[in-house]
Design a protein around this nucleic acid. Structure first.
Lengths: 218, 218, 218, 218
DNA sequence: CATGAATGAGTCTTCATTCAT
DNA sequence: AATGAATGAAGACTCATTCAT
């Protein structure tokens, strides 16, 4: 319950309200699942009235879609910042940054991941979700492949296949997220991180060391 | 299949009906998603009457749960057969069999995987689903860790961590399934298989060769 | 409230239920108007549950449309019976029968007329209603024109225009219905009948007498 | 239009707004029907803000009622002007003027007639509408009866019934309006006018000629 | 056992009305 | 006086569940 003390009748900028509702939707999907979510639940979580969701999003379906897009866009932006940044001193540092980003608190935040996999679980039967999930992925996969290729070139490794390594990294991270999310006792986040780091270290031995034990504060 | 003697003539129909309904449920979840499924859809798909689902499963929820259990049990049985079989001549052959099984047609069948990820997507918010998903996984993870440890021992590798490799393999396969399911053009099944094989080959170089290009007929 | 004493859970033939709902709809439109009608009102009037309307008609809109068609079809059938019957001994008798039918109790029944004019009032903005209202009217107008032409021929009247007389008769009856319905004190049904009879008598003096004073029991 | 002196600068806007909203309401009823009209539609049509309707009319219901009264008052005023005018040289001329008025462009304007019949269609179930529709009608009917009686007296016709003729004329015009409005192809306005003229000509042969073929420019 | 018409609680959606600005 | 974001009651529609046949 996020009542912010305001008389709540006060009109707020459209974007603020939409953001408020999207945040409430994320919480509700994490708590009740995609098939258990209702507009009543979402608006109550936001501390607003029932009608407000349709006022700002026209329909429940559009609210859900914009929520999905919000989550994917946020991740894509963070990832793109790393892949495009000029600040990295080395290819290894960039790959490490990518890895650390993928297991940073904002990314592995329970609620957001729950939303992500809730939509992926329905993606097969909902072309709209599928498109929203896939669009940015293709781009990211290309960029990561390029990054990995650069690392292989630097190492003089002509045998390895950058595309295969990239596809593997992406899927591995997805799988680790999913398993750590569903049952953190079986796969603690620290262990998940070490698995991913190990994967990269064995592919890019010259760039990434194995010894770092994990992210602090996880 | 354990035939229960001569009285099966009477006892069988009940199980047949349940199986019929579970198969229809699998198809419907794949087609409409967990949040789009209705008993009317399922029973129509099965060519039966509306009331039959409640007659045999008491409630929609139980039908869904049994469907999930059906899918996980089927996978667990196949995997256990490999992990426990006496027929393998070498550890490498057993690991390869595990890999091939994970990408064999019955396992990567679109409908079943869709069901699997549909339930996983809701697992975070539904303890019942979570338990059904996790139970057998813990066991499998232990057995796979043992298998990998055996391989490492045979290779004299004392540096590698079998538990980490096992967790990585399981998550990698989950991630590959998910990505290949959601968008097979971005990640074709053949490529997914090569990624998984590459993962195992780099961990168990002495046991598994890289050159095998993929499963036939995929 | 039309509870017919049955346990109401008993399944009835589909057509019987539809008829039951259409009758309830007619009553409700007469009582609350097209813009005041709700499915709750209709189903309560029928003594049935809320969901039944959508079960048999798919949507409120289709229930309303079928109700309109029911009313128009009933009138058209009665009128067609007169226009096509072989039983009339003379043209005058047929015209008189037409007139008497137009003011017979089943036709001028308050509820049905209210439904008729409720839909006509919306017809301008609802092509679906417009079509349902117009379709049979065109046919009837043609047949009435033919009948009037026959009467004029028999009378040797070559000056009068049968088409004009028919259009006039139809509109006059519509207007009389409407005015008698809206305010029976200003235009009692008996008077409305005399007006219509007078119209016909002045056009077909040889066939129809003026003296008959009106329908009994009105 | 009675200008209220110099303070009109301040007082006028209120009336202007109401008129603006009534005109928008007329358009919207014609376009969407009484059951499809919403305040959002009306205020958007008027180019004003959502809250303005309640500000000036207190409620939607009152806006609708005032719209109905606006339309009926306009018609009644035009009709009264003819019935009371001192300018007519003969009874025949006055009757003809009445007829021509009833089919003059401002009266048969599509939107206004649509509004008129939309309310009439609901009148049976809404005493408020019924009263608004009937009030002036009674008066008009009396005056028209007087006019017709005068014509009959002038013609020495003692057999005809002026009240019956007046009731017939009023209903006939209503019916013609309705039919021409709903389906102008089946009953073109020119034909409707000829029907009405024919009705009057056959009742008042000495006063009204048949030969005039119709209104120009229709 | 099986059927499917009927039920009615639960949801989404609309929209007149309110009120802070 | 005017605005339009926000409200929440009311209504259409869905669908798991029941039960007479």
């Amino acid at each position: 319950m996020t009542r912010t003390g305001n008389k709540s009748r006060r009109a707020l900028p459209k974007e603020v309200r939409k953001e408020q509702l999207i945040q409430a939707t994320i919480k509700c999907i994490a708590k009740h699942g995609l098939s258990g979510i209702t507009l009543a639940l979402v608006t109550r979580e936001a501390g607003l009235s029932m009608g407000i969701a349709n006022l700002h999003f026209d329909s429940k379906e559009k609210l859900l879609l914009e929520t999905l897009q919000h989550v994917t866009a946020e991740y894509a932006a963070g990832q793109a910042a790393i892949l495009e940044s000029e600040d990295f001193s080395s290819t290894g540092a960039r790959i490490t940054a990518l890895l650390d980003f993928d297991f940073s608190p904002p990314v592995i935040e329970k609620n957001k991941l729950a939303v992500w996999f809730a939509f992926l679980g329905e993606a097969k039967s909902r072309p709209t979700y599928q498109r929203a999930c896939s669009r940015q992925d293709s781009m990211a996969q290309m960029r990561i492949t390029e990054l990995f290729q650069l690392a292989l070139d630097e190492a003089g490794d002509t045998a390895a296949d950058a595309a295969l390594l990239a596809a593997g990294y992406i899927s591995l991270v997805d799988g680790l997220w999913l398993n750590a999310l569903v049952d953190p006792r079986r796969l603690p986040w620290k262990k998940a991180y070490r698995v991913a780091r190990h994967y990269l270290a064995s592919a890019f031995a010259q760039h990434i060391a194995l010894d770092k034990r994990g992210l602090d504060g996880m």
